[in-house]
Amino acid sequence: MLRDDALKGKTIIVTGGGTGLGKSVTRYLLQLGANVTICSRRQAVLDETANELMEEVKQNNGSGTVLALACDVRKTDEIEHVIQKTIERFGQLNGLLNNSAGNFISPTERLSYKAFDTIVDIVLRGTYYFTLAVGKYWIANKIPGTVLNISTTYATTGSGYVVPSAVAKGGALIMTKSLAAEWGKYGIRLNAIAPGPFPTKGAWDRLFPEPLASMMDPTSRIPLHRVGEHGELANLAAFLLSDYSGYITGESITIDGGEVLMAGEFSHLDKVTTEQWDMIEQTIKQANRASKNSERAKD
């Protein structure tokens, strides 16, 4: 637990900050006094999150402020817009949390080329686009900065049934280490967090419909016999974005209760039959359609 003003005066961009882990990390960054720009593709979701978090800041007499900006991380012009508006609002930019993600749980041969591209574009392309954009800004203006990428344990171990994500996360992790070596001379640090299971309602249900949900009970494979709590990951993220971690760069820190010690995170899905995969595929498609229809209704 960092002191309440540990990030006071810092400005941080959080991609995928409207929901899930991104929202939880943003909440904690605000508690520590940071100004945070949250971005994702859905402005309505961002606005709802920003209003909720700012109300919490007021209730707790905090000093952080939220700026909500729609952004597709696959589009460089939108990324440049987010950076520009962030600097206009807060006067500077000190950190970036690359948290936008996508995933499919599926036998790889069932995926279309487009499906594979979608994950790689969001996770890898989006990460290096945003990282390159903030790096150019920091270097040109002689400003030290910090990039934190949300990785995964299978970025290094590999895992069946999540190959597009593994490819993208693995590439992003190598970029993290490579740029840490190259940009250290500019005072720019890059690190990664490799989380295990940190369930979020909605996203977790869509990713793991039955019978996957029963088979994916992670506590049976985690030495600590529980899933992670969002506050635990938020605390680690805040530390790595703060000056207290000033001598740490090029590292990937695993926070998974020991799950990585038990081999590939999804490789045990060999037990799923072809018929079950057919049923799972239809369930996921229906859940995704329902989610999109709900988003359109909110917009």
Rank of each mutant, 00 (worst) to 15 (best):
S178Y: 04
S165K: 01
G160D: 10
A172H: 09
D205N: 12
A133L: 05
I150K: 12
Y161F: 15
Y137W: 14
V162K: 00
S178T: 14
T157W: 05
N191T: 07
P209E: 06
G187P: 00
Y137S: 00
P197F: 09
A180S: 14
T157E: 13
V134G: 04
I150D: 07
S178K: 06
F208W: 12
P197Y: 08
I143R: 10
G184M: 07
A133S: 09
P199A: 05
N141L: 06
T152M: 11
I139E: 08
L132N: 15
E182C: 02
G171D: 03
A213V: 07
N149P: 03
Y128L: 07
P197Q: 10
R206Q: 05
G171I: 10
A203V: 15
K185S: 14
Y129N: 14
F130M: 15
N149C: 14
L212D: 01
G196Q: 06
T156R: 15
G170Q: 05
V163E: 13
G135H: 06
K136Y: 05
G145E: 06
M215H: 06
R189I: 02
F130W: 03
K142N: 15
G145I: 08
P195M: 12
T131F: 12
V162R: 00
S151L: 06
T156D: 14
A168G: 07
G187H: 01
T131P: 01
K201N: 06
P209N: 07
S151G: 12
F198K: 11
Y129E: 08
P144K: 11
P209H: 06
Y137V: 12
K136W: 01
L132G: 09
L148V: 11
A203G: 10
Y128C: 02
S214R: 13
A172M: 15
P164Y: 09
L190G: 00
S159W: 10
I188S: 02
L132D: 14
N149D: 09
F130C: 13
R189H: 04
I174D: 06
P209R: 07
T176C: 13
S151F: 01
V163T: 14
E210L: 00
T146H: 10
Y128D: 10
F198E: 04
K136P: 00
I193W: 03
G158Q: 09
I150Y: 02
G202D: 06
T176M: 07
A155R: 12
N149H: 15
K185W: 04
A140K: 15
M175A: 13
F208T: 13
G170I: 03
L173A: 07
Y154E: 13
P195D: 07
G171F: 09
A213E: 10
K169E: 02
A213I: 05
N191D: 08
L148R: 12
T152S: 14
W138G: 00
T131D: 15
Y154W: 15
A140T: 14
P144S: 13
G145N: 08
P199G: 01
K201H: 09
